[in-house]
C-alpha cells in the first residue's frame, strides 16, 4: 500500500513539470520478438540535469530501458518521449568500455564529434581538456589494450561526454571494476556531472552505488520489469566518500534492499 502512494506522488505533477519533461515514459511496455516481456507498464520521468538511478535484479529490463530512452529500440506499447534521443544528443556508456581496439584513446574519444563532421584539429581543443579532466592526458596516444580497466572506463566516459550531450545513459558502467576503483569513479562521475548541465540515467545492481550517486532511485522488479517504487535521495551535493558511512545512507540502502527483497519474496511465493 505504501508503495502505491509513493508511486502516485511520483506521477502527480504540475503543468510546469510537463514542460520540463525531458524524458518521459508513460505505461511503456516492451516485448521482444521472441515473446519475452522485458518491461511492463513502466512510467518514469527525468528532468533536465537530473541524476536518476535504476536498480533491480539482473534481467529486470534495466538495460532495455536505457536502449528505449536512447532510441535504439522502439517501444511495444505506451508513450515514450525522449528529447535527447530525438535530437541525437545522448551519450551512452556500456558495462564494457566498448572502445575501438585499433584506435588510440584520442581517436576513440573523438568518435562522436568525428561522426558529426568535426575535424581532428577542431576537436583537439575540446578533447585534450576533457582527457585532462578524466585523468588520461598522458594516454591520448595509447591504445585501449594498454590501459587498465578503470582507465578504459574513463576513456569510455570521456567519449560519451565529448559531444556534450544533454543526457548520459550509463548501463552498469562500473560493474566490472574493483571496489576501490568503482568508489573513486563514483566520486569523479559526480564531479563531471555537476560541472555540466547533464541528465544522467544510471543503471546498476548496486544499491549503495545508486544511493550515493543519484537524486532519485527507481526500484524495479524482475521479469517483466516494473517500477516498484521511486525513492528520493535527500543528501546534498557535493557528496564525498564518507557519506557511505553515515547512518542515514545505510538506512536508506537498507530500506531499498528491503523493498527489492519483499518483491522477490512475493514473486517466489506466487
Amino acid at each position: 500500500m505504501e508503495a502505491g502512494t509513493q508511486l502516485e506522488r511520483a506521477y502527480r505533477r504540475t503543468a510546469q513539470d510537463e514542460i520540463d519533461d525531458f524524458v518521459r515514459l508513460r505505461e511503456v511496455s516492451l516485448t521482444f520478438d521472441s515473446g519475452t516481456r522485458a518491461l511492463e507498464s513502466v512510467s518514469l520521468t527525468l528532468k533536465r540535469g537530473e541524476f536518476v538511478s535504476v536498480v533491480g535484479p539482473s534481467g529486470c529490463g534495466k538495460s532495455s530501458l536505457l536502449r528505449l530512452v536512447a532510441g535504439l529500440t522502439p517501444v511495444t506499447s505506451g508513450e515514450l518521449k525522449s528529447r535527447p534521443a530525438q535530437q541525437q544528443d545522448c551519450g551512452f556508456v556500456f558495462q564494457d568500455p566498448t572502445l575501438m581496439p585499433w584506435a588510440s584513446v584520442f581517436d576513440n574519444v573523438w568518435l562522436p564529434l568525428r561522426l558529426r563532421g568535426t575535424a581532428r584539429e577542431t576537436a583537439q581543443q575540446k578533447i585534450l581538456p576533457l582527457l585532462e579532466s578524466v585523468g588520461l592526458a598522458e594516454f591520448a596516444e595509447a591504445l585501449p589494450a594498454e590501459l587498465s580497466g578503470g582507465m578504459r572506463m574513463r576513456a569510455s566516459i570521456a567519449r560519451a561526454l565529448s559531444a556534450e550531450p544533454q543526457l548520459l545513459l550509463m548501463d552498469e558502467p562500473f560493474a566490472a571494476l574493483d571496489e576501490y576503483t568503482r568508489q573513486r569513479l563514483n566520486v569523479e562521475l559526480l564531479q563531471w556531472w555537476r560541472a555540466r548541465s547533464l541528465g544522467v540515467l544510471f543503471v546498476t545492481h548496486s544499491v549503495s552505488e545508486a544511493v550515493f550517486l543519484s537524486q532519485r532511485v527507481v526500484l524495479m522488479s524482475s521479469r517483466p520489469g516494473r517500477v516498484l517504487q521511486v525513492m528520493e535521495v535527500p543528501f546534498a551535493y557535493p557528496r564525498s566518500r564518507e557519506l557511505r558511512d553515515s547512518a542515514e545512507f545505510i538506512a536508506l540502502g537498507r530500506q531499498i534492499n528491503a523493498a527489492l527483497q519483499a518483491d522477490r519474496d512475493t514473486g517466489e511465493g506466487g
Partner: peptide, 17 residues
C-alpha cells in the same frame, strides 16, 4: 562489436562512416 554498432547508430553515422 554490437555495442559499437549501437554507438554509431546513436551518433547518426552514415553508411560510409
Amino acid at each position: 562489436d554490437r555495442n559499437l554498432r549501437d554507438l554509431f547508430t546513436l551518433y547518426g553515422a552514415s553508411a560510409w562512416q
